[in-house]
Computed example of a mutant assay.
Amino acid sequence: MISFCNDARELTRQVIEEFFYGNPEKVLQNFHPDVTWIGAANGQCIRGAEKVSQYISHMELPRCEVFQKEYQVVAHSDDMYVVAGWMEIGASQGESGKLSVVQRITFIWKKEEDRLKLLHFHVSNPVEFQENSEYFLRPAGKGTFEYVKKLYSQKRRLIACGKHDQTYVLWNKDIVYIEAENTNSVIHCLNRDILSRESISILEKKLGEDFIKTHRSFIVNSRYITGIRRYQLAVRQGIELPIPEKKYREIKEKVLRAVSQRQNEVCT
């Protein structure tokens, strides 16, 4: 009996983790013919191995991590084992945190011919009461909201006004550097150059923290800096841009700090 209790708990762990790692086969191969699945979303109450298998096989889920979990056998008989617990699943965001949600689970395993088959499984989100200062009812919603606010504050895109009333929407990661040209600007991208009728000062206000103004005529994307020496900054494709003598030390510190921060993000 103890052995089957341990098997039920371990099978629960394996099935959950394989499912969220993008491998539903571990779930499907353990179904009892009369399995019933109750999920957290609307319409996820299905009975029968064929119908449940069909539904799960067509689910499009991103790969998730199981950060924390706790499962235990809460009841059992000679041929039935009930495993209940909770798990925290989500997508890791490195040092900036993670988007996650806590889900409660109940798995019922039925022993047939000395093998456990999944007869019922239920996944649900715990209900949380809304606080006065909150817009979302659940921590996942709050976490997602805060993460989206962070992305927005980082200004991941640049909307630039070009000549002849053209408007360009550019991802910051595609911009190498921006160069002043009289009262206009040239946006040097990875695969093209764009002439903007906005001044470099106006564009600077629209850019995120990855950009460094190294000269009154140049703003550089720190991700494409390849080197720095006295009064010269090297960027991709062997381009060198000037640094004012009086601001060299200040610019150098900004460059080294930006490069170091980017390396840390890559490592995490």
Rank of each mutant, 00 (worst) to 15 (best):
L207Y: 04
N184G: 00
Q154D: 14
E253K: 15
C64Q: 14
I108K: 05
L28T: 08
S199N: 09
K155T: 06
V259P: 01
N264H: 09
V15S: 04
R104H: 11
S217H: 07
F4H: 02
N125V: 15
I225C: 01
N172T: 13
Y81T: 03
R13N: 08
D193Y: 02
G90I: 07
R249W: 08
N6G: 05
Q130H: 11
I178P: 01
D7K: 15
E18L: 08
F145V: 00
I228V: 15
C5F: 04
W109T: 00
K155P: 04
V259H: 05
E70M: 07
K142R: 14
G94D: 07
K98Y: 06
K252D: 05
A234T: 10
F136A: 07
Y81R: 04
Q166T: 13
L241I: 11
E240Q: 12
Y55P: 03
A84R: 14
F145M: 10
L116R: 08
E70H: 15
L28K: 08
V127A: 05
D193P: 02
G227I: 09
G94P: 04
G238M: 01
T106G: 00
S217I: 02
T183M: 10
L233G: 02
S96F: 07
Y152Q: 13
K149N: 11
Q103V: 13
E131D: 10
S153H: 12
K98F: 09
G208Q: 03
E70D: 13
K150G: 09
L207F: 07
M80E: 09
V127Y: 06
F31M: 04
V220F: 03
A180G: 05
V83A: 04
A91I: 15
T183H: 12
Q44E: 15
V27P: 00
L170I: 14
R249A: 14
S96Q: 12
Q103K: 11
E179Y: 09
E250C: 04
V73W: 06
E179K: 14
E65F: 10
E128S: 09
E25D: 14
T12Q: 01
G39Y: 05
E60M: 13
P126L: 05
L195K: 08
E128K: 01
H164N: 15
R104E: 11
W109R: 05
E265D: 08
S57G: 03
K246W: 07
N6S: 06
K254I: 02
I239K: 15
E146N: 14
K26R: 12
M80D: 02
D114R: 11
R236F: 02
L99I: 15
I239Q: 13
S199E: 05
A180S: 15
P62R: 04
N221R: 05
K142Q: 12
V235L: 01
G90K: 04
V255M: 03
R104D: 06
G141R: 05
S196W: 08
S77K: 03
N23M: 08
N30L: 14
G227F: 09
E95A: 12
K110W: 04
K213Y: 02
T268N: 09
N221K: 05
L116T: 00
E253L: 13
Y147P: 00
S133L: 12
S185C: 06
G48T: 07
T167W: 06
V74Q: 10
E245D: 11
V235R: 07
M1Y: 11
K117H: 10
